[in-house]
């Protein structure tokens, strides 16, 4: 017998359940407990970059919005740099941008919103330029292991066309499930998205 390979095994995932708000967004559960809270607002007054709102819903297999879903986003700053030591690319860090936020969907409408900035293009480990995108992680009652997807931007057609991840998506008709649509409302830029958990327009989810 060879020596055993004593790697540990990852802890198994479990659903976040219907009361995920208590732990992660207690104000949405209906009470105030922490001095400092995390939120869906990623920008501060001095954050660099174009202010945008990301706004969308997560739909179940009947097309109904999930009203108890929690989304987190993780993104690069306006210069295309992640605020993390493992990103050693050339873009400048922005002390006023962590790049992460979380939001619960509205209990009535299912709408999820983030106030953030449009990220810059990032450079992957092979030196390729990647189209600007936001990484999304989805948990809820009925979701047994968090779902990973991305949001790209409808006004980045040229960059999207050469993005190495979008180009992995087959058949190509599914690529549109990852594109948020740019619009304007009262002078503010709003990108709208729909995440379909099932159906003919099922969103592309990643095993990252």
């Amino acid at each position: 017998m060879p020596q055993p390979l004593n790697y540990l095994k990852e802890t198994a995932s479990q659903t976040a359940g219907p009361y995920v708000h208590i732990g992660l967004i207690p104000a949405m559960a209906g009470f105030d407990i922490f001095e400092k809270n995390f939120s869906n607002v990623l920008v501060r007054p001095n954050t660099q970059g174009e202010r945008i709102t990301l706004e969308g819903k997560v739909l179940d297999g009947t097309g109904s919005p999930l009203r108890d879903v929690l989304l987190e986003i993780w993104q690069a700053n306006a210069a295309g740099r992640y605020n993390h030591p493992a990103d050693r690319s050339a873009g400048a860090l922005d002390a006023d941008f962590r790049g992460w936020g979380r939001a619960g969907s509205d209990f009535e409408t299912g709408l999820v919103t983030f106030e953030t900035i449009k990220p810059g293009a990032i450079t992957d480990r092979a030196g390729r330029k990647c189209a600007p995108h936001v990484n999304v992680w989805i948990v809820a009652r009925g979701i047994n292991i968090g779902l990973n997807t991305r949001l790209y931007f409808s006004d980045e057609e040229a960059a999207n066309a050469t993005d190495p991840v979008l180009n992995l998506v087959e058949p190509p008709v599914r690529r549109k499930t990852l594109i948020a649509t740019r619009g304007e409302r009262a002078g503010n830029v709003v990108y709208s998205f729909t995440i379909n958990l099932q159906g003919s327009d099922e969103t592309v989810f990643f095993d990252v």
Binding site: G61, I122, I143
Partner: peptide, 16 residues
């Protein structure tokens, strides 16, 4: 009703 039916697309770890 909340489980994706398509295969997950495997990504090698990038900066993201």
């Amino acid at each position: 009703l909340r489980s994706p039916r398509q295969s997950l697309l495997s990504l090698e770890g990038s900066a993201s």
